[in-house]
Design a protein around this nucleic acid. Structure first.
Lengths: 341, 341
DNA sequence: CTGAAAGCGCTAACAC
DNA sequence: GTGTTAGCGCTTTCAG
């Protein structure tokens, strides 16, 4: 209520100049005696240096901007949690925004961050190029998390090792005898789809393009994709869902169409979420270290010196995934044949 | 990269004084001609007013602080999403922090917000009183969301109408024939437990204190509480879980102990989450409007004029819940009797 | 080792 | 209607 205590108040109370207070509080040199007096005065007055003044003067905020498509998606929530944890450890504030994977919205949020003087951003990019132009022009340090956007080879990224995760899953399914495996892909998951194709090919199996479908990141679209897939291709015996949303849709669609998991279809989901264990049967998943991805990305953005915006292209940091086998995969059979009889 | 464009640059480019630029950009009066020139120059230079300068000058940031126990919990994620949406509509940045429901951590985050000069905060309070003392002392506007803390009658709150939600659920179960209903309570859910007791009493049923247990907001603790409850009281026929975490634990524990839902136990969870529909059977829930709670809280904190910190006590805003009947509740039977035979 | 003073970008008096 | 100017709280030369 009463006016905020400023550095001037502390200086007066301690009988020194403001510069001295500033020095003492930021660990500069001062005589033990002076330091003592300043510290006492500061404590006495419950002084908190204003970040506003400091940032204006230093021309940088230190804060971290955090952009996620949807904080309500458990995957991004975990990424955000990691960023929050790292920022907290570094004592930096986090300004957050949801983009809904919409470039226009992303653009707005970036504009807001720029206005706030934020100079570091961790983002799950929507994939569009334009929204980021003002940001790189302004020279802010950005690190992409969980996804990489084409045309930004110079922006560091931290993501799950999707290739290896998908490969392990496909190999697992093929080992179980599956031959007609589908892939439900989502937004910004080109890597996963590519890895899916490559693994199949490497295993000497044909790639059936009809078994590779996509859903937009919304429940209805995901459900439509899953349901359509099951109905159009009754011969498929396994599906890999590219996100928890798509996995959810697959479980729901399978249930709706009276397909038993894993008797009729085997299911693997990319992303581990608490409910995967609650399902009947519990879902086998490829678990990406979402929280670690966020933490690492934040660490990276905090380490990177300010100036280093555009420059050498950096290879994305890949974090290992883990195949957690639960109960949603069975031996591969001729589902279509059985059902047709 | 190059130095940020300042108001001075715009003024020079437009051939006017800085004050004029400021006026034009904040909708003040100016001759159409001047306005035109300023706007053109600003657009040309891609000028973005610095929030740092403005905030320092105006002595307020406008930004909203957002404190949640755990962004990874789908309930708080939805609350946060609501706050984000409202703040976005108002063009205000949101600084977020996770408290882990730990007063000490809460204290730290509040300190950080104070340092940042944030003057409005929406928070799901941990329940402790001390962390908030510096905040109210500094005169910042706070609105509690989803929970209310004792001793803060003067802080507005927006929450679910827990009494009515719990009452509806208990009445529903009693109507189904249940007499031994348990309540799994969580952190900061005094209201719910009280409503549970009251409804039972109002219905002329005895309150069995042994059937009211609590879990800390962690998976292991929640599981222990649920599991213990089922084992200690094989005679119970229904349980109301006070949060999605507790509901998850109940589902898991029931499964582990080979209790069928709803044949052996009926289950109602406070909070609706996507996986509730995926469960077998799908869970009947009391759905609180989490996102709306966040949105309303943000609206409220944005509306409240700055000075109005301490003052008239305000009754919490209660948002209606909805009982969504799915498949986890059956007729009440003598579970204990059956099993003992 | 310490203090005085400049100035970060902006807005709000105040003068013209 | 428009320009000049004084700070907002802080850090950082630069003298002493």
């Amino acid at each position: 209520m009463r006016a905020r205590t400023t550095i001037k108040d502390v200086a007066e109370a301690a009988g020194v100049g403001v510069a001295t207070v500033s020095r003492v509080l930021s660990g500069g040199s001062a005589s033990p005696q002076t330091r003592e007096r300043v510290l006492a005065a500061a404590a006495q007055l419950d002084y908190r240096p204003s970040a506003l003044g400091r940032n204006l003067r230093r021309q940088r905020t230190g804060g971290i901007g955090l952009l996620v498509p949807d904080i309500t998606d458990p995957f991004y929530a975990r990424v955000a949690d990691g960023v929050l944890a790292c920022a907290r450890a570094a004592g930096e504030p986090v300004i957050m925004g949801a983009t809904g994977d919409d470039p226009e919205s992303e653009s707005e949020v970036i504009g807001m961050l720029l206005e706030q003087g934020v100079d570091r951003v961790v983002a799950v990019p929507s994939g569009a190029t334009e929204p980021w132009a003002p940001a790189v022009r302004a020279g802010l340090t950005v690190v992409f998390a969980a996804r990489h956007a084409v045309g930004f080879d110079d922006i560091p990224a931290v993501m799950a090792d999707e290739r290896s995760g998908i490969r392990t899953a496909v190999e697992y399914l093929v080992g179980l005898g599956h031959r007609r495996i589908a892939h439900l892909g989502g937004h910004g998951q080109g890597q996963r789809t590519a890895a899916f194709r490559d693994t199949l090919t490497a295993l000497g199996l044909p790639v059936d393009e009809e078994l590779i479908v996509f859903g937009r990141p919304a429940r209805d679209s995901a459900y439509a994709a899953a349901s359509g897939l099951f109905q159009n291709r009754p011969d498929l015996t396994a599906v890999i869902a590219g996100s928890n949303l798509l996995g959810e849709a697959a479980v729901l669609a399978a249930h709706e169409l009276d397909l038993r998991v894993p008797r009729d279809v085997s299911l693997i989901m990319f992303d581990d979420v608490p409910w995967a264990e609650l399902c009947a049967p519990p879902l086998t998943v490829i678990a990406p270290p979402a929280r670690d991805i966020g933490y690492r990305a934040a660490e990276l953005v905090l380490r990177t010196p300010p100036g280093r915006g555009r420059g050498g292209r950096s290879r994305p940091v890949k974090m290992p995934t883990e195949l957690i086998v639960r109960g949603s995969c069975g031996p591969g059979r001729q589902r279509g044949a059985t059902r047709r009889s």
